[in-house]
Design a protein around this nucleic acid. Sequence first.
RNA 1: GCCUUGGUGGCGGAACUGGUAGACGCGCUGGAUUCAAAAUCCAGUGUCUUCGGACGUGUGGGUUCGAUUCCCACCCAAGGUACCA
Length: 967
Amino acid sequence: MNYDFRDIEAKWQKYWAENETFKAINDSDKPKFYALSMFPYPSGAGLHVGHPLGYIATDIYSRYKRHKGFNVLHPMGYDSFGLPAEQYAIQTGQHPAITTENNIKRYREQLDRLGFSFDWSREVRTSNPGYYKWTQWIFIQLFNSWYNKSSDKAEAIETLVSLFEKEGNTAVEAVCDEDAPNFGAAEWNAFSEKEKQEILLKYRLTYLADTEVNWCPALGTVLANDEIVNGVSERGGHPVIRKKMTQWSMRITAYAQRLLDGLNKIDWPQPLKDSQTNWIGRSEGASVTFNVIPNADVTSSAVEKPDTIEVFTTRPDTIFGVSFMTLAPEHDLVPKITTPEQKAEVEAYVEATAKRSERDRMADVKTISGVFTGAYAEHPFTKEPVPIWIGDYVLASYGTGAVMAVPCGDQRDYDFAKHYNIAIPNIFEGVDISEEAFADKATTIIANSDFLNGLSYKEATKKVIAELEKIGHGVGKVNYRLRDAVFSRQRYWGEPFPVYYVDGMPQMIDLEHLPLELPEVEKYLPTETGEPPLGNATTWAWDRLKAEVVSNELIDHVNVFPLELNTMPGWAGSSQYFNRYMDPRNDEAIFSPEAIGYWQDVDLYIGGSEHATGHLLYSRFWQKFMFDRGYVPKDEYVQKLINQGMITGTSAFVYRTKINGKVTFISKGKIKTYADYLIEITDGADFDLKPEQFGTSALQKIHADVSLVNASDELDVEAFKKWQPEYKDAEFILEDGKYIVGREVEKMSKSKYNVVNPDAICEEYGADSLRLYEMFLGPLEQSKPWNTAGITGVHSFLKKLWRLFEVIEDKEPTADNLKTLHKTIKKVEEDIENFSFNTSVSTFMICVNELTAQKCTSRAIFEQLAILVSPYAPHIAEELWERLGHTESIAEAPFPKFEEKYLVESSKEYPISFNGKMRFKLELPLDMGKDEIEAAVLAHEKTQEQLQGRTPKKVIVVPGKIVNIVG
RNA sequence: GCCUUGGUGGCGGAACUGGUAGACGCGCUGGAUUCAAAAUCCAGUGUCUUCGGACGUGUGGGUUCGAUUCCCACCCAAGGUACCA
């Protein structure tokens, strides 16, 4: 009988579904095990071969744990809000809910075909109102909480209000906005309701603030960094600038220290912990205040209260080396302090900076640029004037957006000073700074620094902080690179905020009226006045009396108020989904106390490391918040995390520019340099790019779908024009009549248009083959290229396995059979525990090869082998299990037990090396002693042959391992 | 730029704590079977070679009896870099 995988796989998939084989119960005598894979975003391209990699690994582990007697929870769902569905909606007018529903259907079919042991009764979708009701609920909980530094946890906002009523805010230790005013109890009680709300907003864990966005004026919308190529929009190639906008933020910085500390108690990969540690970026130093010297020419400088610049520095010990200050061009003070003579230059520079992305500014360390503001600050100790510059190497979002520049001690400051001829005072004992800055803290001895002379870095730091505190110009401070997370998106396809505005102040909708469902809109684009897409909704106002959404026309600011127009970001729905799986149909609470009490936390989480500083940090933050407020029993939700490596694909690129106002794509071979291609293609003709614009934005590298490109890297130009409507009328500059694309290896992703689908592979080889092959590709954690060709190897292994079971007899296994089996049990069990699934597959191949050679027919051996294989290739395992005479599923059959006694050896084939190189092998008994081995080896004729009369200088014998002869 | 990971035959990869480099599979070559093909099976397959052997794990150094494994410096590729998820 042939191995008919199509019938077998369909049969068992049906069996598992009908018998609810993998349904988890929220209570059991068995120990619990919660295995989780990161849920997918259901994109229009369907599941690609990169997705199942982690799912297969989690599935193998889940099935293994079932064999080991655990009550396993292994759920799956969809992260179904997101940008691509919305972009598709913009292009086609199709409602994102419809495309999302279709995509999910497709994903489900694809997932079902792979034979996963998911408990589908617990499926969640982040875009379902029944789910996002609880995302909105958490948002409200955050809004109604503040962070108490004394108790080091989040507390209900009521406790803060009662503190304010009793003693004002002077004694309150809270994480809050920098500009929170000081007030006493009497003042608080005298504040109007609006004033009180304004103040509370500065304390809430989610709050409104002005933050920067990538604004694209031509598209009238905010763009994701992902949608920007070389400083212009990917869609249309329009300029993008940085602009401030009022948005919701999450006070994740309140948790900075706890997010760091928590890393010590979880079993996560070290690189991932490092990423989070660096992201949080704790540094110790001092906050120092410089006064700006008033200038009569600058109208705004108030006489009584001078402007101050606050800086954070990790090297307060070098304060006497300050020779200038640099502000981020966006710094609030810049327009206030700039002198009339410098105004034009400063404004031009600020405008130019707004066009650069933060990443660009960080990455570019070669270009030094800046402008003098004309203003001076006063050195807190020497009282000398210090010139104030602006420079784009200072980022507004890090620290205070201002630095005290110490050119002798910081290379960037040094380069800046050199470039602009600013003095570089040397404040280090015995150090030459004529060539470069000196930044070695360990050997620092301070000089030319008044009271700090002769001190080390440590001593000087301590002393200077004390002095700064004395004169009221600074304080020791721990700074974090981590910033509060912007939580608003100017998008349609996301969770609506349960928020309406009364007199400009945000109000939460009561829990009993949730979910607040997304309104219908006619267009998914921003409104003509630049409001987010929800601004297009005509029924988007909150009637406080009726507690329902009503027409905008009824807004009277008395009972009917405007609703929030932004939506939540992609990570909102994924930050607590793992807890929702525990009790996904609960409509009364996010989960019942019983469910969370039983499942507690995730035992194993497998997902990509690219989520290190996004999802995996935000969800830890929310979990800690949920813990503080008493909703969950653990403040870390994942004990053990494994990063699956990416499957890489080969992307194709086209090169876009504009010539004579027309979008033009240039074949790869035609671009050597910008100058080259312009000469070559313009042929003296008129074109609308000026030479000074030849910078990075003159040409953009754009992804083309790999399905439009053949094996010789030729683009199907006609298909490409049809692929995206905006390319319909584009021009193409060809080479030899062809358009040749660029190729690069990148992670496989829908957004990079380089995906390979698993469907055809399933059809041709079956799910078990695909499962085995994905594991066989290489170590789970490493990224690896996809190449379907090799799958025939694992497929023929399955055929061999099938043939091995052709004759089944109730025969005693031979010693060889048992040795092969137990060798396999040992290795496979070790491999699963170490998540080394690739080597298991090789082990199975060796096992089947050996048993076939031994002509094994023993039922006892086959039973054990079927269970071993079942986590990896569950369909064939079930079928073989049935052939062995079982009527129940193999899913809970106990895992085979390894017995050492079958593997005991009496001799070893020793490698005999000369100067570390193996020359021949010699079989010797394992109980032979060191000296006997040495004697036996030296007596051997091949040894004499190798030595050719020389006497060995040394003989190293490691019993059971190796013999090495030196000489 | 910064942080993280990786680099071993034509390809994916293996090698547990420093001890036989290239397991297992793909591909390729030759053979069997077949009218032929597919499928299957058998044998071979790191490079060079005067057929003794020599050289080989990104590059250059170092430690060691012995290094893919440990140390130092460098090169290259991928992921992340705060609005892709």
